[in-house]
Computed example of a mutant assay.
Amino acid sequence: MHSPASERTFIPVRIAILTVSDSRSLAEDRSGDTLVARLEAAGHILADRAIVKDERSEIADRLRAWCADPAIDVVISTGGTGLTGRDVTVEAHRDVYEKEIDAFGTFFTMVSVKKIGTSAVQSRACGGVSGGTYLFALPGSTGACKDGWDEILEPQLDYRHMPCNFVEIFPRLDEHKRRK
């Protein structure tokens, strides 16, 4: 049985931010800046940050490297989730996932519909797990990053959130790899 949220102590999560873009630099990365500001304001730790080109193999390689890094708990990418030929972030994420968090994309769409109406169908936000690390792909707009963080990720990455949250199951994400 869970204790009430008020009795739980906040647990900071180590988060890496990946911006997928052919044209942005860190100095121009407003969406990455938005996510960094929000995660730090919530009390979490920026574990790493990078920008990669819209190349499926480069994105997947960065995700795999961060999943192998014990100093990173969560990866949030921004950009490359649309429908154009260069939008390959979702495919790269799925190349890495061991399990997909199907409801993440569904819930993101529900949140987006309230803000942008039927245009929400053009987003392919997704989430998954690999190597005990959570991975989330958000669209590249600052509005989408705000919505994804504020409405989904901030509460789910807060151990005090009830009735359940992503943080409390961290120890069990790779239990299938342990000897029995």
Rank of each mutant, 00 (worst) to 15 (best):
G105L: 07
A68D: 09
K53D: 11
L83P: 05
I76T: 03
H44G: 05
H44V: 05
I76A: 06
H93E: 09
A68S: 02
D95Y: 07
S31G: 13
A41S: 11
T81V: 13
D69F: 00
G80H: 13
A5F: 05
G105E: 08
T109W: 05
T109V: 08
K114S: 09
A37W: 08
T34V: 08
D102F: 04
T118D: 09
S21A: 12
K115Y: 08
F107R: 08
P4Y: 07
K99I: 06
T89E: 09
G128S: 03
R49E: 08
R94H: 10
V129T: 08
T89I: 12
A60P: 11
P70T: 00
D87W: 14
T109K: 14
T109D: 04
T89V: 11
D87L: 07
G32I: 10
A50Y: 07
A103P: 00
T118S: 12
A125N: 09
K115D: 05
T89A: 14
A37K: 14
V96I: 11
M110N: 04
V113M: 11
E7I: 12
A5T: 05
G82K: 04
E55M: 13
E98F: 04
G32Y: 10
V90G: 06
C126P: 01
I59L: 14
R38Y: 06
A50V: 07
A47H: 01
S23N: 13
V113I: 15
G127E: 07
A92R: 11
R94Y: 03
A60N: 12
L26K: 07
G105I: 02
M1V: 13
